[in-house]
């Protein structure tokens, strides 16, 4: 189900006008009727493993609250991602409260929640065989490739920071509308994050 952190081939893509796809029409995964998204979460870093639950809660127009809790209910991390691009850390246990760890998690989740920034310059490409769209977005220190499925959903993103650090996110969906699972992998640091959506019964959600 989860592939490795392989490099996607860009040779099969041809350049198309930047206006071919309206970025405003790209649908975010974490909006809609569902008021929360709960994922079984596994984090593998080298030979170490962490498990728990990740909750993504859309709040207001374009803001998200993201929490990581253990299976037994202990809150580990509580972050807020604002539509303006700002980030707020509400809570983090001491052991995890390190700049490098938080920065990595922040970037990963940011890539997941707000995939195609409107403020950056982009190049647009099209897969010659499938017709799928690729958007290349260049920022100050990084380049991000967004792979669109059916012109309106990002199902894969790859970000390069410098020539060494690479992050790849793949979204697996049921049909085109609902997320099933997500895999985020890093290189050269052997960090893998697996998220599998939990299907909660209505009866299991108490007021």
């Amino acid at each position: 189900m989860f592939g490795g952190c392989s490099v996607s081939r860009l040779n099969d893509f041809e350049r198309i006008p930047e206006t071919s796809v309206d970025r405003n029409n790209i649908q975010p995964w974490f909006r809609g009727d569902t008021n929360r998204f709960l994922f079984r979460t596994h984090v593998d870093i080298y030979r170490n493993h962490l498990g728990g639950l990740m909750l993504i809660k859309p709040v207001h127009e374009e803001d998200y609250r993201v929490l990581f809790i253990t299976e037994v209910g202990i809150k580990v991390l509580d972050m807020e991602f604002l539509g303006s691009g700002d980030f707020k850390l509400h809570y983090c246990i001491d052991a995890l409260n390190r700049k490098s760890v938080l920065e990595t998690l922040k970037n990963d989740i940011d890539l997941l929640l707000s995939p195609v920034p409107e403020s950056t310059k982009i190049k647009m490409m099209k897969d010659r065989q499938t017709g799928n769209i690729l958007i290349k977005s260049k920022e100050r220190r990084s380049v991000t490739y967004y792979f669109l499925e059916d012109h309106y959903r990002v199902n894969k993103a790859m970000r390069r920071n410098g020539c060494m650090k690479k992050t790849q996110m793949t979204i697996y969906s049921t049909g085109f509308s609902e997320i099933d699972s997500i895999h985020i992998c890093h290189s050269p640091v052997k960090l893998n994050i697996y998220l599998s959506k939990l299907n909660e019964n209505k009866s299991e959600i108490s007021e």
Binding site: V43, I45, Y46, L50, A95, L96, S100, V101, V189, K190
Partner: peptide
């Protein structure tokens, strides 16, 4: 960095 992260996660 990777080692520091590993150590901290282990401690966590």
């Amino acid at each position: 960095n990777a080692w520091i992260n590993y150590y901290k996660l282990k401690r966590m």
